[in-house]
Design a binder for these strands. Structure first.
Lengths: 252, 252
DNA sequence: AAGTTTGAAATGTATAGACAATTATAGTTA
DNA sequence: TAACTATAATTGTCTATACATTTCAAACTT
């Protein structure tokens, strides 16, 4: 039980379930409760604060719908691992077809090295002059020998584990951060734009210069909202599209 | 009370709240309960099916989180109007700035007419040869005398109200359908792609030919999932971008 | 040793009731 | 007539309890 008492005011106008929800949310956010860990049982919370179990369940239901915990009947309720690959920019179409047809779908590491920081990079990471080094990756995503996207990634350099492997287990930016730095990716901001591709990008992807492409810039943050990774990806405009369904769309 | 009894099986392994949720969902979808209308009160449902009010509330909570109804303390619970402009393709940046700074932001009708159907159009609407006419609109979105996007829209022609006004109250595709046809827009599918703009589009938007642009194709459906509107919009690539936040992002 | 049974612990569903907060309406009063 | 007041109706919060379902591990049996 990590929870502290004297933080829930039963006489407040703010509902108890909401106070408890905020309390648990804060503990999870701060890392007092870590992903995979069990949160206290409903009975424990209930008796600790002397509130009804139904009220506790209401608070936990909010956490579940926020995607921060998941409950398993008979086992307990556990802190979820932040999902940093949401549906919004899940560029589908081609990727979908690839998965359905089981085609070859691989990420190739073109380059990985330690680089010196310049001002632009330090600004992106909101860091001072004392940070001198970053990790730098260049990867290509391809299917059936056709190159589909090209991505440049930067992470903060950590002395502790600067192991640069040729084989990338998880080539995503959050994955690289988790593997090669001491930081834990917790949230991300993605910006999608359109652009005409440069000659370099065109030659790597095997398309004509100035072809229209998707351009996705991503910044990954740790639990303190400190930027710990940045990437810029270029996706072939003729291979990707984005679909969404609105309103009372019936999935069944 | 539109609800029929003998449709909830208390001895079933399927939870009562879920049966009730599905029942209400179906009634709303079918149009037995129309947008703006109140659904039966919790007490009515509770006593009608002889189930607890808390169980009814659980079912209604599911409807609320599905966005199909909204509750107002002291008044009742009402069927929501389907929101056909979700956040996914809410191309922001520029539009956001416009709203914040209160700039001039208007949609201009370039053209509106009744057209003859060709095969391509009939296919898009999944209609037979007996449908001969469609409504056709061309609009431009501009801010401070700068044109930002260009859109072509088609809807099924309804004899009943083919009034083509010069002033468009709601120039969105769902709005045009609601105003100029007998159909009620209930859901939509949007596909976002990148493209190099054509010469026509370039001259309308005042940009260079082959400039990269966002291209959004939208199909709007009525409650029976019958396509009743289709549009193709071109957004200036240098004015729009799309941002999303992932993971345990803290909004506060 | 291996499989089976039992029971405790945890979440899931459901009930009945109480009171609070909000809204609308009908009634009362100035 | 207009403004205020009481009341009823409706949703919101909370409690206490009961039993179901699932999981896990300890105890038991073969």
């Amino acid at each position: 039980m990590v929870i502290q008492t004297d933080m829930i005011d039963k006489s407040s106008v703010i509902p108890i379930y909401y106070q408890l929800f905020k309390l648990l949310e804060e503990q999870i956010r701060r890392g007092d409760l870590k992903p995979g860990e069990a949160i206290p049982t409903e009975h424990e919370i209930s008796s600790h604060f002397e509130i009804s179990r139904m009220t506790v369940r209401r608070a936990i239901a909010e956490l579940v719908s926020a995607g921060m915990v998941y409950a398993q009947q008979g086992r307990g309720t556990f802190v979820a691992t932040p999902k940093l690959d949401n549906i919004v920019f899940e560029l589908n179409d081609f990727n979908q077809e690839i998965k359905q047809r089981g085609l070859n779908y691989k990420t190739t590491l073109l380059e990985a090295k330690i680089i010196r920081a310049d001002k632009e990079l330090r600004d992106k990471f909101e860091l001072g002059e004392d940070y001198k080094r970053f990790l730098y990756f260049r990867t290509v995503l391809s299917a059936e020998d056709e190159r589909l996207s090209y991505e440049v990634k930067y992470t903060i350099y950590s002395k502790s584990k600067p192991i640069l492997e040729t084989e990338l287990k998880d080539p995503s930016l959050p994955g690289l951060i988790a593997t090669h730095t001491e930081y834990v990716p917790m949230s991300a901001k993605k910006v999608l734009q359109v652009a005409a591709c440069t000659e370099e990008e065109a030659s790597i992807l095997g398309i004509a210069s100035n072809s229209p492409v998707f351009l996705i810039e991503q910044t990954v943050y740790d639990q303190d909202l400190k930027p710990v990774g940045w990437s810029k990806a270029v996706y072939r405009g003729d291979r990707y599209k984005l679909t969404s369904y609105d309103g009372w769309y019936k999935k069944d």
